[in-house]
Structures are given as C-alpha cells and as structure tokens.
Design a protein around this nucleic acid. Structure first.
Lengths: 187, 187
DNA sequence: CCTGTTACGATGCGAGTGCATTGCAAAGCC
DNA sequence: GGCTTTGCAATGCACTCGCATCGTAACAGG
C-alpha cells in the first residue's frame, strides 16, 4: 500500500490552526477556508481528515480537554495541596499563549450552551476535574466527602470567574492567583 | 408629517426576538432573516431601525445591561446586605426565562473576547457592578476600601462561576444560592 | 384634496459558506 | 515497471449571508 504519513501530526496541525482562528476571530469566524489558510493547507485536506466542519470543531474541543488533562498529569509527583493550587490556577492567562488557550476554552463554553456534543465533552471534563479535586482535598486534610465536594465546587467556580476576569483584563493575573492561594490555603 | 409609530416599542420587539434567537441557536445563529422571522417582521424593518447587523447585536447587548441595572434599582429600599445578595444571585437561572436571559448574557461574554464594542459595554457594566458592591459592603460592615474591593471581586467572580455551572446544569440553583448566602453572610 | 415625509416590504446582488465530486500524484507491493 | 491503494488539491454547486436599492402605503399639515 501507498504513501504513509503521520496522521496524528496532520490532524494536530489542523486543530492548532483551528484554535488560532477561534482565538483571533471567535468561533463565528471559523470556516473551512479560514482554517485551511491558517494551517497553510487546502480545504480538501481538512475534509479528508475530519470530514465535516462540525466534526473538526468538536475534535478541537476534545483536543483542548486532553491537553489540559495531560498538563495535570505532569504534576503527579507534587503534594496534594500544590496539585490543587495548580488545577485552580493553571488556566489563568499569564502570557499571550495562555490567553489564546483560555479564550478558545471560553468560546467552547459558550458554544456548549447550544451544542449537545460540545456540552457533553465539557460536562465530562468538568466532572473529572471535580472528582479529582475532591480526592486532592481529602488527601490534603481530613474532611468528609460532602465537605470536600462543597469546597471543590466553590473553588472551581471561583477559579472560573477569576479566569474570565483576567481574560478580559478586568483583573491582574497576580491578584487572581493570590485570591486562589488564600482560598486553597484556608481550606 | 406622516405615520407616527412608537419607535422604542418597535426596537424592543426586535431586540427581544434577537435574544430568543441567541438563546436557542447561539450567537452564530443570528442572521437578519432569522431575527426577522422570530419577530414576525420583515428584514427591511430591522434595517430601518438598526441599520446594520453589528449595530443590532450591540443594541441587544446594551439592552441586556440596561435591563439588569433596572432590576437592581428596584431593590433600592432594601438593606445593604440584602441588596448585595440580590446582586450576586439575581442572574442564577431558576426557570426557563432566567435561563434564556443568562444564556444570552454568556453569549455576549464570549463575543466580548473578540469584539471591542461589546467588550467595552460589558467592561463598563462590570465596573459599575463592582463599584456598587464595594459601596454595599462598606454600608453593611466597617471595612477599608481595599478590603471591600477584594471581597467584591471575589464574590462577583464566584457568582459568575456558579451561574455558569447552574446554566449548564452541573449545579442546582438552590446550592448555588446557598453557597453565595454563606459567603455574603461570612463577609 | 393635496403634498411631503416617513416607515418599511420586496427584491436583487456579490460574496462567502459547507460539502460532494473529480482527478491526479505519490508510493508500497508484485 | 506496472498496479493498486491512499492522500489530497481543485473545482463545482446549491445555499445563505449582509446590505443597497427601489417602490409604495400610510398619514400629518396645508
């Protein structure tokens, strides 16, 4: 058989271009032509690897979730308290790259309100994060499962809100991190 | 001169239809034709009153902010603590109407990342809310301006995050309200 | 009645869209 | 060196989009 290429690499190039388009034009600006131009490839290639526009956009969502999970796993050998703080503060944008990532994230969050497939992906990710936070909290201090769950939910919601404010430049990254450090420390 | 109609009424009908379209199809689904169909009017009417699609969408944003501010002003004769709680919990969706309103709100938040005009409207609204919360906090308890500002920011961010989770049905409205009541009470 | 202005419905146009189709180039196997 | 299967570029098509334009129905003032 013929012509062997690295499929994962090809898919990744296209997904990365998709993220760039979303970051700088919003999810409204996503079209096969725009993504193809950003990636420097032809529309045909995108169709070949993803089939449909919806499939491409959804793949971009799962890729985002996977990347976040991979980043978390790299902290496996840290103390629970540190890992918890990492989960809360990781998505706070500190530079342009972080800003791109989190703006894409929020684009998908908004889309999830009206898109069942995206909603399911994000719901699953959120549930995973919540479970993991509960585990970290109970590893850090002696509390009941219910207490840990309430604390996890409060912390995650707070982190989301702070991240958004940093993204739209209503808040400095340092201040957001400081607030979260105080909250995580207080238990 | 001719043909007198209530301009505000006409504009409001169209903006309301716009909100419905955003709520059920997302901001991607907004087109002059869709909004016109939802409002039961012709495209020409929308052009007559708003000129351009961008102007319509922006008008929908300012109308949303104005409505929220009007709702707040209705609580003018309540105690500061109660008003503060109202600000934090008002946008938590309890029924379908509330869900529509807040989903439109989040659509605009996402749009503000890439749209300067929307961003400015929301930034102004957020600043106003923050200032008002600082005033309410200092009327409720004796704290410094810096402390009140820090508390206000933390509460508003937390309320945003909780609202989002209720919207995507990851959290019950009652639990979100309970968390906020505890936080506002704790000071 | 007439006239001038306003309110808007209808239509047309050029641009952009997602997707199906077609065709060909590249590269293992025989 | 053919043969065959894959990877993908190119093109065409039906459709939707925002917006400009045109026509006209309605109505207050003279």
């Amino acid at each position: 058989m013929p012509r062997v290429v690295d499929h994962e690499e090809r898919r990744w190039e296209i997904v990365f271009a998709l993220w760039l388009v979303i970051a700088e034009q919003g999810i409204e600006g996503v079209s096969l032509r725009h993504v193809a131009a950003e990636a420097g490839v032809s529309m045909g290639r995108i169709q070949h690897y993803f089939g449909t526009k919806d499939a491409l956009v959804l793949a971009g969502c799962t890729a985002l979730v996977d990347r976040a999970y991979g980043g978390y796993q790299e902290t496996a050998d840290a103390a629970p308290r540190e890992r918890l703080l990492h989960v809360m503060t990781q998505q706070i944008p500190r530079d342009d790259a972080g800003r791109i990532g989190v703006s894409v994230w929020y684009a998908y969050v908004a889309k999830s309100i009206n898109d069942a497939a995206v909603r399911q992906v994000l719901a699953e990710a959120r549930r995973g994060a919540e479970d993991e936070c509960v585990r970290l909290i109970r590893a850090d201090r002696d509390v009941s499962a219910e207490t840990a769950l309430a604390q996890a939910r409060r912390l995650l919601a707070l982190a989301d809100g702070l991240t958004l404010r940093v993204l739209v430049r209503d808040l400095e990254p340092a201040e957001a991190v400081a607030i979260l450090e105080a909250e995580v420390g207080a238990g």
